[in-house]
Design a protein around this nucleic acid. Structure first.
Length: 300
DNA sequence: ACCTGTCAAGTCTGG
DNA sequence: CCAGACTTGACAGGT
């Protein structure tokens, strides 16, 4: 089995390379000249994309081929306050540079809209916001010139007191998504609501790949179903994707805070799973979610 | 240089 | 019905 490791958005080894520099909406609204403020947002976005390039070169130098972009490359991109603003033309060269580099180096990249993107919500404004954000995130990958193998990963969302209804709403809304967005979508089991099995069943229903988070599964295990017994089905959700399955790895901060992420990743549980699934998994990508530069994995 | 409170957004729990 | 927890990097204002 060929395993590639990657990480999320920013590096502890590369100083002053944030790809998520921003401006608060309050600050934006305090600037008298709206056009000048918008130009400033565009400059921030260019800086973020520039730092992305630095991160990608750093990755290349360290043989890291898996990377998740910051979801906040363009500050206030989908905020009401910037309504009518479309920075994509100005940013096209910077996005293209990132995408070209990714393709030249055979990297696998993704985006993860944050937890405000909730397709299950019964509130229409939340649903509309979520659609807007998915369009935006998908649009950034498209602006990079990356095809649908560059994924947008989300969680299913909340239950609102009735999981079956929420799941029904989710599937219905997936069916209505623009094919360009649906073709980039992946779903990940979360740490308190939708278990690995429920997420898998939903992935099978709507026809998108599943990202298995082994830490989330540990703290939200459902009825005790084990990863090895689910794995073949999870792997199959990736069969048509043209890329290896992806899993997320992080470790509990402590016994009293099992859901919080530790600064490092304990390799043992991960290695145990990798050994079990290896025979039926020729290739796998592992996203490490950890803060410490000390995180190292050493094995053969 | 360092510290602390605040920030666009959602959901769930418990009072 | 409302406050607080969850979680989180970066900003903004203070020392």
């Amino acid at each position: 089995m060929i395993v590639r490791f990657g990480y999320v958005a920013m590096s502890a080894l590369l100083p002053n390379a944030s790809p998520s520099k921003t401006m608060t909406a309050t600050r934006f609204s305090q600037l008298a000249d709206r056009e000048a403020a918008l130009r400033r947002l565009e400059r921030l976005a260019e800086e973020n994309l520039h730092n992305c390039m630095r991160l990608l070169r750093h990755n290349s130098a360290h043989d890291i081929q898996v990377f998740r972009f910051s979801s906040r490359l363009i500050p206030l991109a989908t905020h009401e306050i910037t309504a009518g603003w479309n920075p994509m033309a100005v940013l096209a060269p910077a996005f293209a540079e990132v995408g070209d580099y990714v393709q030249q180096h055979g990297m696998r990249t993704s985006l993860h809209p944050d937890h405000f993107t909730v397709l299950t919500s019964p509130r229409d404004e939340v649903y509309q916001y979520s659609l807007r954000d998915l369009r935006h995130q998908s649009g950034m990958l498209a602006a990079m010139g990356l095809d649908e193998r560059a994924k947008c990963n989300i969680h299913i969302g909340g239950t609102y007191g009735d999981k079956m209804t929420a799941l029904h709403r989710f599937c219905e809304r997936c069916g209505k998504l623009d094919p360009a967005i649906l073709s980039r979508l992946t779903l990940e089991n979360d740490d308190k609501t939708y278990t690995a099995l429920e997420t898998l069943e939903t992935c099978e229903k709507v026809g998108v790949p599943m990202v298995l988070d082994i830490h989330h599964h540990q703290v939200n295990p459902g009825n005790g179903e084990q990863i090895p017994e689910l794995w073949l089905r999870i792997r199959e959700t990736w069969d048509a994707a043209g890329i290896p399955p992806k899993i997320h790895a992080s470790s509990p901060k402590s016994a009293s805070m099992p859901k919080a992420h530790a600064d490092y990743v304990d390799p043992e549980p991960l290695l145990t799973i990798l050994k079990i699934i290896a025979p039926e998994t020729p290739a796998l990508d592992v996203m490490i979610e950890a803060k410490s530069e000390r995180t190292k994995l050493c094995f053969n």
